[in-house]
Write a protein that binds this DNA or RNA. Structure first.
Length: 273
DNA sequence: AGCTGGTCCTGATGGC
DNA sequence: TGCCATCAGGACCAGC
């Protein structure tokens, strides 16, 4: 998927279209996503006004009077503006049709999701998928002490801990490697054995990495496209990701690639101890 | 055949 | 022994 910067870029791209606008129709062509798109969802939201486009972790949250649409883009999803007359292509599973615009969700692998959380079930944060998420990386309470506190007693590798999402959300596979490089931490180090000063550096590195990527408009990795159909620019500035064998941009030592939890990790063996 | 941006779920393990 | 938290692996998919 899009990682947090791509989701945030998407949110910003669709916000002017959806906020304060009535959704005319929701068109679902394929219900088989990570979970089935609920039956009857179209009727539930047709004609209803969307108040805000929010985000929690990598989940997009469209707020109505009577509940929230929870949208996840999975591994390969995108949500973009299309011309209302543009015929759907393969894997264009859902349209949000407004009077003045149409948004289209495209997701070849169908790891994404479109779910409904009714207002009577309480705040959207209470939804099972959101309830146990970690802190937002740009929350002022997120710092080295937070990382340190939440990793005590945990033996998993620090890169895995970043990916798990129960400590801090939004750090996916690419930005995990990038953040650890910026912090000078070896991705294999056990999370529970890293001291506070190093976590201070890591928290700052996470914020800087994600912030830079958001500023650049999200990543252009492979098929990522933003809400306006544009691709991002982060790929050209990746410091270690997908650079196995290439010289470290700092010390020129060849970047190494390893597998952790069946996912690729990239790091500089000299800069990251 | 082996990769690829996510993350839920299950079952195993280990500590108290 | 039982309960809990943690953790590894599998699962879901399509396209290179």
């Amino acid at each position: 998927m899009p990682e947090l910067p791509e989701v945030e870029t998407t949110r910003r791209g669709i916000a002017p279209t959806v906020e304060g606008s009535a959704l005319r129709r929701l068109v679902v062509r394929e219900r088989r996503m990570r979970w089935p798109i609920p039956d009857g969802l179209e009727a539930l939201v047709a004609g209803r006004r969307i108040h805000a486009a929010g985000r929690r972790g990598k989940y997009l949250l469209l707020e109505f009077d009577h509940g929230w649409l929870i949208v996840h883009l999975g591994m390969s999803g995108s949500l973009r503006h299309v011309h209302p007359d543009e015929p759907p292509r393969k894997h264009d599973h859902v349209d949000w049709v407004f009077d003045h615009a149409t948004l289209r969700m495209h997701d070849p692998r169908r790891f994404g999701a479109v779910l409904w959380h009714p207002a009577e079930a309480g705040p959207v944060e209470a939804h099972p998928l959101l309830a146990s998420l970690g802190i937002e990386p740009f929350d002022e309470r997120f710092d080295g002490a937070w990382l340190h506190r939440h990793t005590r007693g945990r033996s998993t590798a620090v890169k895995q801990a970043l990916l798990m999402g129960d400590i801090v959300v939004g750090v996916g596979n690419i930005y995990a490697s990038e953040s650890l490089f910026r912090a000078g931490i070896n991705p294999r180090t056990q999370a529970g054995r890293i001291a506070l000063p190093r976590y201070d550096r890591l928290a700052q590195a996470v914020r800087d990495t994600l912030g830079d990527a958001i500023e650049a408009g999200g990543s252009s990795l492979r098929d990522y496209v933003g809400a306006g159909g544009e691709s991002g620019y982060f790929q050209i500035s990746a410091r270690v990701y997908d650079r196995a064998g290439l010289p470290c941009r700092i010390c020129e030592t060849p970047i190494r690639r390893l597998i952790q939890g069946q996912r690729a990790t990239y790091f500089c063996p000299r800069c990251q101890k």
